[in-house]
Design a binder for these strands. Structure first.
Lengths: 241, 241
DNA sequence: CAAGTTCAAAATGCATTCATTTCAGGCCTT
DNA sequence: AAGGCCTGAAATGAATGCATTTTGAACTTG
């Protein structure tokens, strides 16, 4: 249900409400969204000063809406504001990373618990299908394909939880670690690939039985394992595997 | 144009960093914090339009910082912004409330799980002490005292989780339901008071055994029960004793 | 020669100003 | 007389301007 990028249209309804779940304000159209993507996609190095004036030119807006957007992104944790010294890309210490991974793990655990109460048989079938695809990618040693399916499975569980506030929180904290997460995923998960597959089978099994508490535990442990695999290898940036 | 000598004080440290966890920007000193309190404390009725100009006068700032603050509060979910129609206090549907309660329950569950990994014996003693106090209040039928201890226990567990990102999220979503939560707590929990006490004993027991997964389940169920007690009685506001 | 100081350029924070949009009331049409 | 239309006032969104702070580098000094 993530809105497609195209805002081609206009406000289909004059009363398009904008809330924390779709955090933007009007803010000169899509400025906030574009700027968030710009940051999340890593165009600015970690800890770098955010060149307010330069971004104004790049996005074709004046300083006022840009500064409003920066404030919002800071409140989302992507930037940090230093009084009279502007915004920086918020650097993530290894401690921050651990905390965020645990938090996201908790949100996934909650999603699993709620999903067990509400998921339909059709949705479970869909996830089983994704799981089979993922397994095929595993056999072919296709990492990108594997991760795509993996993401889709976790996203499906999140959707099945039917909780917009939860999804919103998950998206917010997910954005915060997105850069690092990519690195972690692709670089250092290979040695526990088989283990991850087994965990996913347990996830699917618990889901079928609608065993909410159990699924909750499995999902949290699953993310913990990912985290350990990631942080034990590269705490700062050790591109070496 | 603040002729007040208010800036005498100063940044105790020139490098006071402002991040998502302490969401404010400089924003004319404490404007964001004050405005957030103003909203959370319910000075504006639910769904009311936020009188931008009036608030500017009340807080003695111009529109620019006020609008920045409103954007941030909207991204926190306290307000909603309607394009070209300003900000409103975000109304909470019963669906919103259910979602937020579940989310907060998930965060408490996570806190319990993490606390079991990290809590010290001294902290457990402290919680046992609070529990005894709470029980005394229960015997005396002192609701306010009871809830104060209750809050302190949950806060102690959250602290023991040693996760700033989690605490921040908990605070953010807690602020969102603060008004309703008060109503819910005081009004309609009386009939399950004894049950709540038993649940708290189970919480303490699991904490002593450092049984993280189990504590997680108990805490989530505990909040679910609170929620049911609250939403079944007063969806809007039933000031009944 | 290194460390501290000074001063101008740049950047930040806020106020003010300007263009659009919304909202309200009265007028006209049917 | 009811409903739609039009016009002016108010409000919102963004741009610009100004005062203060930071920054960086040249300069002085021990």
């Amino acid at each position: 249900m993530t809105a497609l990028p195209a805002q081609i249209t206009v406000q289909p309804t004059p009363a398009q409400i904008i809330t924390g779940d779709v955090p933007a304000g009007s803010l000169h159209g899509e400025l906030l969204t574009h700027l968030r993507d710009y940051i999340v996609e890593g165009h600015l190095p970690d800890g770098a000063r955010v060149p307010e004036r330069e971004l104004c030119e790049r996005f074709g807006v004046s300083r006022t809406p840009m500064r409003e957007a920066l404030k919002v992104l800071a409140s989302e944790g992507l930037l940090e504001l230093l009084p009279n010294r502007g915004a920086r890309v918020r650097p993530l210490s290894s401690q921050d990373l651990i905390e965020l991974f645990d938090l996201i793990g908790g949100l996934e655990a909650l999603a699993g618990r709620l999903a067990c109460e509400r998921i339909t048989d059709a949705e479970i079938d869909e996830i089983e299908h994704l799981h089979k695809d993922m397994y095929a990618f595993y056999l072919q040693r296709d990492m990108p394909g594997y991760f795509r399916c993996n993401q889709m499975i976790h996203h499906a569980i999140m959707s099945a939880a039917r909780n917009a506030a939860l999804s919103s929180a998950y998206a917010t904290y997910g954005a915060r670690i997105k850069r690092v997460r990519y690195a972690a995923n692709f670089a250092h998960q290979r040695d526990r690939w088989g283990e991850a597959i087994r965990e996913h089978e347990a996830i699917l099994d618990a889901l079928r039985r609608r065993a909410g508490a159990e699924l909750s535990d499995i999902l949290f442990a699953h993310l913990r394992n990912k985290m350990v695999a990631a942080t034990h290898h590269s705490t700062s940036d050790d591109p070496e595997k």
